[in-house]
Design a protein around this nucleic acid. Structure first.
Lengths: 212, 212
DNA sequence: TAGATTGTTAATCGATTAACAATC
DNA sequence: TAGATTGTTAATCGATTAACAATC
């Protein structure tokens, strides 16, 4: 994953969504039309040089003396990240996490549309979740292939995660966000990222001192 | 956050929970007593040299020729990460995400115990969530200080996130995992990490090609 | 114009890897 | 013993930062 595709470091790609998010907030605040690398960096705790360097991988988006036109830069970042389309996305697993994801408003306008949700528990199949009907995971492969869906969110127990991953990969999924606290094996060309809250929290406790 | 405390790079700290998780899985599989940096690296897609180097910041935990005793290394990592205690944790926000977190089993045995959950919506206050009663956010400061809680999970809308953060910081919280898609300002000595699924997904779409 | 800020280069800094002596 | 694997050093590689000419 430090892999360099297009010659652009993955760590740079990783910062672009952060820039995009902050710029979107700026645009919503609506109190200015342009910003500078310095201002953006201040918000994010990133040096202005790094922001300019990162952007320079993709072109020239600013004006000397003025900075960046916020809306224009948003547009450009969305284009770079392939977000000027909506990615149909499936959720696998309709437990508490799947349920929360199905109701999450944050996908809208950020490039993703939750299209389907699957589970294998007969007691939840057929249930409505925010307008989607929970489908049996047996239908997954067929649906995915028919609809050409490339993005999936995995919200199943760790014990099922690898099997479902294999299923997804077979069905043509190219990018998986996994909530299962386990490392997944996928072939080259398939991207996985992990969302394990405990890993994040454990990373912080190192710096804490017990006061008790 | 690239800050070097104790002289140990934060990026190294960030990998320790990943090692810990994989080792715990190995221990659960129970088919062997020791592992090697090579085997662990294979599982995680990390070089064996990096694993050995990372561990060497903290001491010598292996034996030449044999590798690492899995349970012993788990114990040591837990100690390094301050996980040989349970951190009392509060959840702020009892919406879909807070609800899912309250029911998440993954905190157990990994260093955290969800102790309280707060919201400001009268219609959810008093509700039971997996054994916890949702409390009004007005009680937050007093409870936190009385109980000396240092760890919080933020699951409120972006619009409320900074205000609640200020409240938490005032009440002595030192580490926050935020689900709000917004950058938070905190004073030095307070740690924040973010869990925005969309940011993770946007990072992957860069590598995708639309097939439609 | 003067001030501000970009994009870029070169220097610095830090992280990863390769290699190997030590040794179980 | 021979084979395996550690911990560590030095070399390599890559990322960040400082500085500044260009220019809006």
């Amino acid at each position: 994953m430090p892999a360099v595709e297009n010659g652009i470091p993955d760590i740079v790609i990783g910062r672009l969504p952060i820039y995009l998010r902050a710029l979107t907030h700026m645009a919503q605040e609506g109190d200015k039309v342009t910003t500078s690398s310095h201002e953006l960096g201040q918000r994010l705790g990133i040096s202005s040089a790094q922001i300019r360097k990162d952007l320079s991988h993709f072109g020239e988006f600013g004006k000397q003396g003025t900075g960046y036109h916020i809306k224009y830069l948003i547009e450009q970042l969305r284009h770079i990240l392939n977000l000027d389309q909506e990615w149909s996305t499936v959720i696998v697993g309709a437990g508490y996490i799947g349920h929360a994801l199905a109701h999450y408003q944050g996908f809208q306008h950020r490039g993703f549309r939750i299209q389907r949700i699957f589970d294998n528990d007969p007691s939840v199949i057929g249930q409505d979740m925010n307008g989607l009907t929970v489908q049996h995971v047996d239908e997954l492969s067929e649906v995915m292939e028919n609809e050409g869906i490339q993005v999936a969110i995995l919200a199943v127990p760790a014990s099922a995660a690898q099997d479902i991953t294999d299923l997804l990969v077979d069905a043509g999924v190219k990018s998986i966000l996994s909530y299962a606290p386990i490392n997944l094996n996928v072939p080259q060309g398939v991207w996985v990222r992990y969302n394990d809250p405990v890993v994040q929290m454990q990373r912080m406790t190192f710096y804490l001192k017990s006061e008790e």
